Amino acid sequence: MDRMIYTAMSGAKHILEKQATTSHNLANATTTGFRAQLDSFRAVPVLNSPSPTRSFVVDSTVGTDYTPGAIQQTGRDLDVAVQGKGWISVQLEDGSEAFTRDGSLKTNENGILQTRAGATVLGDGGPITVPPDVTVSVAKDGTVSAIAAGFKPGAATVLGRIKLVNPAEDNIVRGDDGLFRTKDGNPPDADASVALVGGALEGSNVSVVDAMVDMISLARQFELQMNLLKNAESNETKAAQLFGLS
């Protein structure tokens, strides 16, 4: 009974935490370039306990699903999607480097190329500045070119090349802001094998159907844990009555 209470109590607690993760994934089913978070349960024995039968259930974040999402054509010049593996490097306000798959780019009031969230897109030589009144195009290798608006098509001016990286998946971690970083803090070098698709965006890799099924399954598991706690309470009441008779 003691083991039942500990397992059911901790199981119910962490089922709620996993339900929150599943809800977060489902809420980002339409977020550009989103990567689903993966959780799993594991049993952990209680240390320094006189009863070796006690154990807890722990919800462990095992990582991220790096399966590429579907690429959808948008026709917008500053929309790019990473084809296959790889990331777009961005620079944050504190000067640190992070990675994203969200290729919905824009220019700020100073013409600096940024993501929709406001992170500066890194080029091989630093931030990329786009002059006003130009038509911008992004090549497969990340080269950003511009042609002055109102002029006959001619040789395009190369503004820079987006830094594309492909660090090992076991060396990157998701931050609270949704961006990814290397675990060791060292920014990786540019990878020439990473390719972009212009005029397109990558969708989220979250399956709405799978997420809904997981939420239903977790709700039933939570109900099971509650029933176990009720059974433990019932058993304890009956045991107390038996002891009272003796």
Rank of each mutant, 00 (worst) to 15 (best):
1 M>Y: 00
6 Y>C: 00
7 T>S: 09
8 A>N: 00
11 G>N: 03
12 A>D: 01
15 I>Y: 01
16 L>N: 04
16 L>A: 11
17 E>S: 09
19 Q>D: 07
22 T>W: 02
23 S>H: 05
23 S>V: 08
29 A>F: 07
30 T>L: 14
31 T>R: 06
32 T>A: 07
33 G>C: 11
33 G>Q: 10
33 G>M: 05
34 F>P: 02
34 F>C: 06
40 S>L: 09
42 R>G: 05
44 V>S: 11
46 V>C: 00
47 L>D: 13
49 S>E: 08
49 S>Y: 08
50 P>M: 03
51 S>D: 13
52 P>T: 09
54 R>D: 05
55 S>T: 04
58 V>P: 01
60 S>Q: 11
60 S>T: 06
60 S>N: 11
60 S>I: 04
61 T>A: 10
63 G>N: 09
64 T>R: 09
64 T>F: 12
68 P>C: 10
68 P>V: 12
70 A>C: 02
78 L>K: 05
79 D>Q: 08
80 V>T: 07
80 V>I: 11
81 A>Q: 03
84 G>N: 08
87 W>M: 07
87 W>H: 04
88 I>C: 06
88 I>A: 07
88 I>Y: 06
91 Q>T: 12
97 E>Y: 12
98 A>R: 10
101 R>T: 07
102 D>H: 13
107 T>V: 10
119 A>N: 12
123 G>D: 03
125 G>K: 12
126 G>I: 04
126 G>N: 06
126 G>M: 05
127 P>T: 03
131 P>W: 08
134 V>Q: 06
137 S>R: 08
138 V>N: 03
139 A>I: 03
140 K>A: 15
141 D>K: 10
145 S>R: 07
148 A>V: 12
150 G>Y: 15
151 F>C: 05
152 K>E: 15
152 K>Q: 15
154 G>K: 15
156 A>F: 09
156 A>Y: 09
157 T>D: 14
158 V>P: 03
158 V>Y: 10
160 G>N: 04
161 R>W: 08
161 R>S: 08
161 R>N: 12
162 I>L: 09
163 K>I: 07
166 N>T: 08
168 A>R: 15
170 D>I: 13
171 N>H: 13
171 N>Q: 15
171 N>S: 15
174 R>C: 11
178 G>Q: 10
179 L>M: 15
180 F>N: 14
183 K>M: 14
186 N>M: 14
187 P>E: 15
187 P>Q: 14
191 D>F: 13
192 A>T: 14
193 S>L: 11
195 A>L: 12
195 A>T: 15
196 L>N: 06
197 V>D: 05
198 G>Y: 02
200 A>H: 08
200 A>C: 08
201 L>T: 09
204 S>R: 05
206 V>S: 10
211 A>K: 04
212 M>T: 10
213 V>R: 09
213 V>Y: 12
215 M>R: 07
215 M>C: 11
215 M>A: 13
217 S>W: 04
217 S>Q: 13
220 R>S: 11
223 E>T: 04
223 E>I: 01
226 M>E: 02
229 L>E: 02
230 K>Y: 00
231 N>I: 00
232 A>L: 00
233 E>T: 01
234 S>N: 02
235 N>R: 00
235 N>F: 00
236 E>W: 00
238 K>E: 01
240 A>Y: 06
242 L>W: 06
243 F>W: 08
245 L>H: 10
